[in-house]
């Protein structure tokens, strides 16, 4: 008994490092993460509360801050559902059917990930701006896109375009089509098949994609910054309002608004961990598709 235990101990020792190497690596890693991750997060809240709780509440109650919060919620409320519907439709077409050119289509859906946020916003200016292709025509009809809310919505739709689709496509491909085919053979309609068979199978993955899409929609800065024009109280989303306040040396107010966005990030991380634990998988960054602003 003692003998086998001894051997097992030695087998374990052969595939791990000595105690001091282990603690050195843990120490180095935690120091690095502490400096680069924990400290910026702590700094946001420390700066936001640096002049007291009353000042913090007053910064958030400011009418420009409130309108920025409203606009951010409005943009997310439009962009997230639209891209969710697209994501489900694209995943259904790609995962449940065999057709020519599928991998090209997947590559095209991923395209917004590899475009710099500034360029994402800029393509809208080139299209809808005063010197753009469609801009003069639309402006003659009283429709403004650049420096208006509709431009912000379009920019957000562009940058959050792949999030839900990218989450669902591999998931639905792995699940195959047998269950849906069985439902059809038993007489279910197409919609019933989707609602009763497919949706329960993909609900956690769908929620995961929606959460990531929402975090990006509310936090997008570069693309939105190009098309917004930074009109206070009108076309400022929360990240843009942070920038305006910061550039006016109104640091405490800037960090107060930023702290709300940091809270959103923390909530996103918690939900993400819960969903990962529920589905028991760890996604690589490519699957999560984080390549933008």
């Amino acid at each position: 008994m003692k003998h086998t235990e001894n051997i097992r101990c030695r087998a374990a020792a052969a595939t791990t490092e000595s105690r001091w190497v282990r603690w050195l690596l843990i120490g180095v890693s935690l120091t690095f993460l502490g400096l680069f991750l924990a400290m910026p997060l702590a700094a946001v809240f420390a700066q936001a509360l640096s002049r007291g709780w009353a000042m913090y509440v007053r910064s958030l109650g400011d009418s420009d801050a409130l309108s920025a919060i409203r606009l951010t919620l409005l943009v997310a409320l439009i962009a997230v559902p639209v891209n969710t519907v697209f994501g489900v439709a694209a995943a259904w077409a790609i995962a449940k059917f065999q057709f020519f050119g599928k991998s090209v289509l997947i590559t095209l859906i991923d395209l917004p990930y590899s475009v710099s946020p500034v360029i994402s916003g800029m393509v809208l200016v080139l299209l809808f701006g005063r010197q753009g292709w469609l801009g003069p025509w639309l402006e003659a009809r009283g429709i403004h896109v650049v420096f208006a809310v509709s431009g912000i919505v379009l920019a957000t739709l562009f940058v959050t375009f792949p999030f839900v689709a990218r989450e669902l496509i591999p998931l639905m491909q792995a699940q195959g089509t047998e269950e849906e085919e069985a439902a059809r053979l038993l007489g279910a309609s197409g919609w019933q098949t989707f609602r009763r068979v497919t949706l329960p199978n993909i609900k956690w993955g769908l929620l995961y994609g929606v959460i990531l899409c929402n975090a990006r929609a509310m936090g997008e800065f570069g693309a939105v910054s190009v098309v917004s024009g930074h009109i206070r109280g009108e076309t400022n989303t929360m990240p843009l309002h942070v920038e305006v306040l910061y550039n006016e040396y109104n640091t405490t107010a800037a960090f107060a608004v930023a702290s709300l966005l940091a809270l959103l990030a923390l909530v996103t991380l918690v939900l993400k961990s819960v969903l990962q634990w529920k589905t028991g998988e760890q996604l690589t960054p490519e699957e999560q598709g984080y390549t933008g602003d």
Binding site: E220, L261, A262, K272, P285
Partner: peptide
Amino acid sequence: AMVDLPFAMPTAVSGIALTAI
């Protein structure tokens, strides 16, 4: 879970936080 913070945090927030530090 914290490793994903740079993904989840809006970049403008990270930017001003790093500048402050």
